[in-house]
Design a protein around this nucleic acid. Structure first.
Lengths: 344, 344
DNA sequence: TTGAAAGCGCTAACAG
DNA sequence: CTGTTAGCGCTTTCAA
């Protein structure tokens, strides 16, 4: 293994000089700098990460705490992770994968052993037991999602209240008077997951504001559950013509169920989803949707963290405004097919 | 920050004694051991990871190299990752997430800086440019998948040749004489990805062995592509009654397309998929499938790596035998509906 | 503009 | 069974 001493000897300079050439923390004459750089090249020198971390009190590693087991929106998680890793690399950092299964102890473990310099925590609940731990930790953190009490924390999230409202407005603007929110499985609400609760809030408030009916039901991930939920819904409220869906895995089954029940989309039933764009575009018909800007959130989380690591300030709460893209699944109620082969 | 010296002082012993109590690498009298453990507790001591790594030449971190961008089978990837992290934790290791985007340089970076002790590389191509790098790296690695030349490497994978053959056998046993393999997007074949190539080989050989027609076509992920591919297929080979699918994202659309074309599953068309069990079970009808044992592969990869880190030997190539589970999507050709409400 | 050297916190000989 | 101590490879003062 090539050490910094080897490089120093090869270049005929002091160890500290090599260090400073590499870090750029003090000015070096062009001559020596080039000599050192040549030696680094020739010897194939790579600084030892542990030694560097021990001396500098910086590991250049970020922890990403992610729910790997719970069958949460897997593709969205993956998009987050990809954005986090890519952005971290841009700032010369690596990412340590920590499962949410480890709970609060996991955070303490990686933080207090100085394995990482900072943490990104995903899938935050309204009353999250990790939040008090994060507050006490001697390093910065960013939450994706935000708890009821976000004091002293940096949180980033899509504005799900506004997203829920925007879906209602879109459908109400089209003339729909009776809407339903097909939500996440009930376990997610019981866990008091922020995004689910807040979407519901936005949906309900907007329905009231617009003077339209807004009913709400959770929905499990199996086909049978979707079938039963929708049948029950239409039996209880036969006049429903607009559906807001916040439950990625059931989107396929839902379209199937509507077809079986003889409800054409969008002629008989309009659909607005809250999901990743590529999921919306893959359906037939393509879905009008509010996108979940996973890339943007992930990148922003890393950027805030790096800012904090450098002693800067990051905003307490960043709520990204939702964007609705109208596609083929929403139309005025009881509309006629536009063309003969109407469902494509 | 509490250091090992603080603990030693508090317990009235030498630092080495504390170190040995923690590592268990030499026998300590019950008395001092308990005294040290009490001090560790009281002071809330956590060993510093960098210092430990620097002194012991072991970071206790594994690199997981994963394709985060390419729209590959995302849920399967996630299952792998979960199994890897969980198993690594059982052996007191952490996992560093490295994107395949970084290429061979990424491997060298994390390995030669001693950031990690070992590597797990997913999604290996037949001619993978990372393979020669892995061979030269001064640390163990395990590949998930295997290249053409796997000499001197440790590889773990599902036996996709056998999987392809097993699908053919299942359908041939049911009496089907004309089969098609609906494969991955053509880009995956062009990249010479091992699993796709080998499934094709197994499919083709088995079809020949059984004396049945076995045609093969790649398929992109959009609905239109599925529709067009299937229409073309049935036009070219109207007598096809059995489909083998190795392309998770198109499973939903495919069922949709068959319905539109008036082909009932399994009465008019039998389906056998190669995919995760939960995906197969979520469809209507549930799919007969060969499962991808992601958990098992991920756990096995970590175990092999730990064995090698401890100086042991791991088998060069572990090919897990495929398991086919018969569900509702396969039946003898031109079968009659079993019940009135037959498609559930 | 550069060099010398004192740590960073821990492990693992070596010594008893 | 336990203690002493020399590193591990780097960063960063302090001094020139």
């Amino acid at each position: 293994m090539v050490t910094i001493a080897d490089v120093a000897r090869h270049a005929g300079v002091a160890v500290s000089t090599v260090s400073y050439v590499l870090s750029g923390k003090r000015t070096i004459s062009t001559d020596t700098r080039e000599r050192v750089q040549r030696s680094v090249q020739e010897l194939g020198y790579r600084p030892n990460a542990s030694a560097r971390a021990l001396a500098s009190h910086r590991s250049n590693v970020l922890a990403l705490v992610i729910p790997l087991r719970t069958g949460m929106h897997v593709p969205v998680m993956m998009q987050f992770a990809a954005a986090v890793v890519t952005t971290a690399r841009r700032f010369d950092h690596d990412v340590l994968l920590v499962t949410a299964d480890e709970g609060p102890d996991g955070l303490e473990r990686v933080a207090q052993s100085s394995l990482v310099d900072a943490l990104i925590v995903m899938d935050v609940e309204l009353q999250d037991e990790r939040v008090p731990v994060l507050r006490e930790l001697p390093m910065p953190s960013v939450l994706i999602g935000y708890p009821d009490d976000a004091d002293g924390l940096t949180c980033i999230d899509l504005d799900f209240v506004a997203a829920g409202a925007q879906c209602v407005d879109e459908l109400a603007d089209l003339g729909h008077r009776s809407l339903a929110l097909l939500g996440t499985p009930s376990a997610v609400y019981e866990r008091q997951t922020g995004f689910a609760q807040r979407t519901l809030t936005g949906f309900t408030e907007a329905a009231e504001r617009r003077g339209v009916l807004g009913v709400e039901t959770p929905c499990e991930h199996t086909f049978d559950a979707v079938l039963q939920t929708v049948e029950q819904l239409l039996e209880d409220h036969p006049d429903i013509t607009g559906l807001v869906v916040q439950n990625e895995p059931i989107i396929g089954p839902l379209l199937d169920v509507l077809r079986r029940l003889g409800r054409r989309v969008p002629e008989d039933m309009s659909l607005v989803a809250i999901c990743a764009d590529d999921v919306a575009e893959r359906q037939v018909p393509q879905l009008t949707s509010v996108t979940i800007p996973a890339e943007q959130i992930g990148a922003q989380a890393v950027e805030s963290l790096i800012t904090k690591l450098e002693g800067g300030e990051a905003p307490d709460l960043t709520l990204l405004p939702p964007t609705l893209t109208a596609r083929g699944s929403s139309a005025p109620p009881h509309s006629r097919p536009a063309e003969p082969a109407a469902d494509r």
